[in-house]
Nucleic acid binder design. Structure first.
Length: 450
RNA sequence: GGCCGGGUGGCAGAGUGGUUAUGCAGAGGACUGCAACUCCUUGUACGCUGGUUCGAUUCCGGUCCCGGCCUCCA
């Protein structure tokens, strides 16, 4: 497999440190609110990577953290007059529900920041002892000047940070670029005892601590949104590599492009976002997923309703091709796999899928057709698509009106037999009003919900 | 000011130094009682401008426009 590595800015052949065991970490959510569709893009993108890696290697450990201590959570709790734990457990549950609806597999592990406070404190102590960090006024701050490789991921030159940039001036920092590892908490704020008094961790140290615990000092792939390159990932590298005496941190860095709306970045601070929850009310989870996969993961993706409608139309066609697909395993197409091996070229893989679907429709021999169907399904499954059945996709799982539908179809059948086409069309129109579309085939009439 | 992406047919979106994906939508046809599904046919697009080349959408330069990052962010 070939992957684009953000730190070298080149496509590189991927070779895991342990040829039988790939280790991957992706930055997960800060659980202060419901996920928006932009939060879902990295989840779906790295879910495809996870599926690919599992297909190609014996063992894959995929860690995605839950950040459940953060000032945004504190603000949300205060605003809603509920406990912090209420906010975090509820939003964690919502997050998992939303991502499951988008067809994302659960990662191997989903560690929580609050369950790794001791590990963070230990790393911070190491960094102080090695003189990469200093304590002042209850804060512990990373000393960027002591880290001479600082900036290697983002390639930002510290001296060039001039006007236009927001540079925080905090009294406890030696340099404006220094970032906080630990900060003090007052009695109203959540906090843990530490060598520097009661306090809580800064933003970046949680990921370093959880990576170290679950994947070790050096691991294979670190992923996240492109906006995390600076400062989050840059700071993770600094903390971890300084703490580990220069042992390399992630070997491959992967960043997904932003989701945009009407040409503008979608973000909570701009207010131009859709939550996954509200989109799920309108569209099938799988259609949302296909839309998120419609552009290459490193490209920006413009979220527009027409594209989701297009994705739905594509899935209709795909599932039509899978009607009668036996429930048996198939083989992933080589042409399809090769697309994905080239830095997850999903759009090109999808075009292979279209070819397969077309061949299924044209195949007359039933046995051949079923083989093609199984292989098509196996291929699509690598993208987390076509995991349902045609019946479920078209007819849904609610069944209270199925008897009525079948009754109407039978009545129409009788009318057609009597050449009473007017009555037959009346019945069909009546069903259409209820969102039921009929299709006459050589084996009788089938129906779909629209 | 610094750093980084991107501009492809009505729309979405890959890719490539020359045979110019793929899909959605549209048009025509076949099938059908009529439809739907499906099948067949149909679309020479790569911001502008120089250069390199036999040949550039693809390489190089310039230029215009759009977007992102520069400590809230996926």
């Amino acid at each position: 497999m070939i992957l684009y590595n953000s730190i070298t800015r080149k496509k590189e052949p991927f070779t895991p440190l342990d040829p039988k065991h790939v280790k991957m970490y992706v930055c997960g959510p800060t659980v202060y609110d419901r996920a928006h569709i932009g939060n879902a893009r990295p989840v779906v993108v790295f879910d495809v990577l996870f599926r690919m890696l599992k297909h190609l290697y014996d063992t894959v450990t995929y860690v995605r953290n839950i950040t459940d201590i953060d000032d945004k959570i504190m603000t949300a709790a205060a605003k809603k007059q509920v406990s912090i734990q209420h906010i975090t457990t509820e939003n964690t549950r919502f997050y998992n529900e939303d991502m499951t609806a988008l067809g994302a597999l659960p990662p191997t592990q989903t560690p929580k920041a609050t369950e790794h406070i001791q590990e963070m404190i230990q790393m911070i102590e190491d960094l102080i002892q090695k003189k990469f960090a200093y304590a002042k006024d209850g804060h512990v701050v990373f000393d960027v000047e002591r880290n001479n490789t600082y900036g290697k991921l983002s390639r930002l030159n510290l001296d060039d940070q001039i006007s236009g940039a927001r540079v925080e001036v905090a009294p406890y920092k030696k340099n404006p670029q220094d970032f906080v590892l630990w900060k003090p908490s007052d009695d109203t704020q959540p906090g843990w005892d530490s060598p520097w008094g009661r306090g809580r961790p800064g933003w970046h140290i949680e990921c370093s601590a959880m990576v170290k615990k679950h994947l070790g000092k050096t691991f294979d792939i670190h992923g996240g949104g492109i906006d995390l390159i600076f400062p989050h990932h840059e700071n993770e590298i600094a903390q971890s590599e300084c703490c580990h005496d220069g042992s390399p941190f992630a070997r491959y860095w992967m960043h997904n492009g932003h989701l945009i709306v009407n040409g503008e970045k979608m973000s909570k601070s701009l207010g131009n976002f859709f939550t996954v929850e509200e989109l799920r009310d309108t569209y099938a989870g799988e259609a949302i997923r296909l839309t998120l996969l419609s552009a290459h993961y490193r490209q920006p993706l413009d979220w527009r309703p027409e594209v989701v409608a297009q994705s739905t139309a594509i899935l209709d066609r795909f599932y039509t091709a899978l009607e009668g697909c036996p429930d048996a395993p198939g083989t992933v197409s080589d042409a399809f796999l090769n697309c994905l091996k080239d830095d997850l070229n999903v759009p090109e893989a999808l075009s292979q899928l279209h070819t397969m679907v077309s061949n299924i429709h044209k195949e007359k021999d039933l046995f051949q057709k079923q083989t093609l169907q199984r292989n098509c399904k196996a291929s699509a499954n690598l993208l987390g698509l076509l995991e349902s059945t045609a019946e479920n996709w078209f007819q849904g799982t609610e069944s209270d009106d199925v008897l009525w539908i079948e009754d109407m179809i039978e009545k129409r059948h009788q009318a057609k037999k009597n050449k009473d086409f007017k009555e037959a069309d009346t019945i069909r129109d009546k069903l259409r009003e209820k969102g039921i579309l009929l299709e006459d085939t050589s084996n009788g009439t089938t129906w779909k919900r629209k």
